[in-house]
Design a protein around this nucleic acid. Structure first.
Lengths: 114, 114
DNA sequence: ATGCTATTTAGCTAAGTAGTGAATCAGGAG
DNA sequence: CTCCTGATTCACTACTTAGCTAAATAGCAT
């Protein structure tokens, strides 16, 4: 398995359960049981998913009595955003519009030339 | 393994070899051998990585004689970008600045109150 | 037909992942 | 101290992934 940060982050995000947990944490702190509640999974399974998210640095965990409140951490998402930036031309709609625009321009020129 | 599109895409991106192949394809079409060239991997290994990328819809393959020219496909990247949008508040720097700004405001208010 | 180059498929191994239940640790509360 | 709740670790099973070599397929060139 790849161990570079970006690979670990992508791998952590490659699971709908973990993304749902992250979505829940985007709304604020939650305990492990809070996170487990929507799923038909054992607590150990949730704990494991959580560990994957922590290992990726996407989530940090505190302690309050017997609870382990979890928070979302922005750094790895930022790294993904930076990586995505390098491919913006492929996914940004405005680029598609620009592409269509340039194509239209070229067509006009062709018609003028004919 | 999760089979939803986003999970498959993230899983495909969770490998530095595959991301490097994608980076190469971002510069234009390439054959399988072209893609294999920078790596110390057997051709079958590259072919497998390529299949993962194709299965994620990130790459499409044509045929020209005995070559299979590969192209990058934008749709799954777009889906990732859309997903990321939902977390912009966590990774966008301007949010950090806003956060700092609000914090500064609150500190000022506190000092005024004291 | 034969061969040559590009690529894929098959069959295998080693290692990693996702889930389970049982047991254990952490930390109040009676 | 003992019990109860929250959470983790352990030991195990089923499955997937990444790599390899060897063999097969695709398509041009002779």
């Amino acid at each position: 398995m790849a161990t570079d940060q970006l690979s670990v982050t992508f791998a952590a995000l490659a699971d709908p359960t973990r993304r749902a947990m992250l979505a829940r944490l985007a709304q604020g702190e939650a305990t492990v049981s809070d996170l487990a509640q929507p799923f038909d999974l054992s607590l150990p399974a949730i704990s494991k998913h959580l560990k994957v998210l922590q290992h990726a640095g996407l989530v940090s965990q505190g302690r309050r009595a017997q609870w382990r409140p979890c928070r979302i951490e922005p750094a790895p998402l930022k790294e993904v955003a930076v990586w995505m930036e390098g491919y913006r031309q492929f996914w940004d709609e405005s680029w598609d519009r620009l592409d269509a625009y340039l194509e239209a321009l070229q067509t006009e020129e062709g018609e003028q030339g004919a």
